[in-house]
Design a binder for these strands. Structure first.
Length: 476
RNA sequence: CGGGGCGUGGCGCAGUCUGGUAGCGCACCUGUUUUGGGUACAGGGGGUCGUGAGUUCGAAUCUCGCCGCCCCGACCA
């Protein structure tokens, strides 16, 4: 757990101490900004979009472009931080590139013309062609070729988490198919194809860990490379009825979990072993589906379903290094083009995918790894001295333990508070009322199972702390 | 981009066909009441009806243009 604690500190962008930033952080509903909607907005068709709007997480600004309201932003940051942690654990180096780039580099690779209308093109005041980046292969290759000259500097993998823009003809499904989206994009540079394939495998492993920490099962499926180009590529799909891709797979793949296994990311054998384990069973999207191969699966294990694409990894060899002259000198003095790959995780899209995979009629059910607040505290009788004091005490103990409770201290009726808590989907709720306090108990309720248990306040705190032992990710 | 639909207070909608100067529910404010799964009553604030032009004594309503948004399809992380 020690490396975990270290990486946590590295990625806690907005609070580098392990203490709350101020004496009274804004985690009381009376002071927070959580504009929940009682009714369904007419614009939202699918459940994740509807729930994100109703839970006050996002507000549409224009088609496919959203403001991230405080609670949505908090989840976005938690997902982002999990991605950072797992990337750094795999040895990849974080950096950041601009959102607006000159068209020149894109002309060099030939993609300025290939990309078509999806690319948002802009002119600056000097009449130069600029664009809002949909991805960053050209820019990273330009950085690489300017500074790396020797094979001794390889392997190298850098990544960023940055806003991207694709001018979709028809944005829809809320953040799942927006025009502006937040994405992790990483790029590996290696001397040989073998090295680059290890980078590919390493990314597959790190992605499996990443999704699992978010409470998701994302199945790697053989896919099509699209405008990125390249030979080897897998997409990671979360099964959901509302998914945009049709998928075909052997049901045995859904039994695979990554669990707590220790992985040495430098070990070629270990990474290749995981790839083999997770990709040997049939699992393909409609783009690469092969009916004959599919029919070789025992009939009772054949599955046709829909999936949400939450990530993709590519090995594309020397496509960009050839086009852009990214070479290094090898040990024999030859100039050789580097082998590259790129890898993406749709960070903002993941919010939609997680909600699609985890909700019920009453609202969202956050997995513990990404929940905006670790638990809710519902005061059933605001203004009652005993109830107020008990809630304050719970709030203090949980925040002192480094957790983020959301205390509903509004002067609302119990029903309204419960409905709000269910809608926003916090995994655990502590319910505090004068009646229970007379017997020295509060109620701890699981959002997922709906089961409640009465216990002393101190026991509830202890239980929440132990539940989150393995899910310490910071948000805002 | 092809096809369809919709723009009326923060949200959900009625009113448009048949022109007469805007209404309901939720939310919000005040008060009383109530309080363990969205209390009840009373009072109140907020909209030049997406936008521009036209027709008319008079336009949310009719005509034409424009803009925006949603859905289906094709396309995509």
């Amino acid at each position: 757990m020690s490396d975990f604690a270290l990486s946590l500190r590295d990625t806690a962008f907005y609070n580098t101490s392990n203490k709350p930033l101020c004496r009274s952080p804004p985690m009381r509903l009376s002071r927070y900004f959580l504009p929940v909607l009682k009714e369904n907005p007419a614009e939202a068709q699918i459940v994740s979009h509807r729930l994100m709007l109703r839970a006050g997480m996002i507000k549409q600004s224009s088609a496919g472009i959203y403001s991230w309201l405080p609670m949505g932003f908090k989840v976005l940051r938690k997902i982002e931080n999990i991605v950072h942690e797992e990337q750094m654990r795999a040895g990849h180096i974080p950096m950041q590139m601009p959102t607006i780039q000159s068209a020149d580099l894109w002309r060099e690779s030939g993609r300025y013309d290939d990309y078509g209308q999806e690319m948002l093109r802009i002119k600056d005041r000097h009449d130069h062609d600029m664009l809002f980046t949909p991805t960053a292969e050209e820019l990273i290759t330009d950085i690489f070729r300017g500074h790396v000259k020797s094979y001794k500097d390889l392997p190298l993998t850098m990544y960023q988490i940055q806003w991207k823009f694709r001018d979709e003809r028809r944005p829809r499904f809320g953040v799942m198919r927006g025009r502006e989206f937040y994405m992790k994009d990483g790029y590996n540079f290696d001397l040989t194809k073998e090295d680059a394939l290890h980078a590919y495998n390493r990314h597959l492993v790190s992605y499996l860990r990443t999704y699992e920490r978010m409470g998701l099962q994302a199945i790697p499926m053989r896919a099509d490379s699209g405008p990125i180009g390249g030979d080897d590529t897998h997409e990671f799909l979360v099964l959901a009825e509302t998914g945009e891709s049709e998928v075909f797979y052997d049901s045995a793949v859904t039994d695979l979990t990554f669990g707590d296994r220790e992985i040495d990311y430098d070990s070629v054998e270990q990474c290749a072993g995981v790839l083999e384990e997770f990709t040997s069973k049939y699992a393909r999207t409609d783009e690469t589906h092969d009916e004959a191969l599919f029919n070789e699966i025992p009939e009772d294990r054949r599955r046709v379903a829909r999936g949400i694409e939450v990530g993709q990894i590519f090995y594309f060899g020397t496509k960009y290094s050839d086009a852009m002259g990214a070479t290094v000198q090898d040990s024999e003095g030859n100039q050789v083009p580097v082998h590259m790959g790129s890898h993406g995780i749709g960070v903002s899209r993941l919010l939609g995918a997680i909600i699609e995979a985890s909700h019920d009629d009453n609202g969202i059910i956050w997995p513990e790894g990404v929940t905006p607040f670790h638990c809710g505290i519902v005061n059933l009788k605001q203004g009652d001295d005993a109830a107020d004091a008990a809630c304050e005490d719970l709030y203090k103990q949980l925040t002192n333990a480094g957790l983020e409770p959301l205390y509903d201290d509004r002067n609302e009726r119990a029903g309204g508070k419960f409905a709000t808590m269910d809608l926003i989907g916090l995994p655990w709720r502590i319910t505090v009322g004068p009646r229970g306090l007379k017997n020295g108990v509060v109620e701890l309720t699981s959002r997922k199972s709906g089961e409640s248990e009465e216990m002393a306040p101190a026991d509830a705190v202890a239980k929440i702390i132990s539940i989150y032992e393995n899910h310490r990710v910071r948000g805002l």
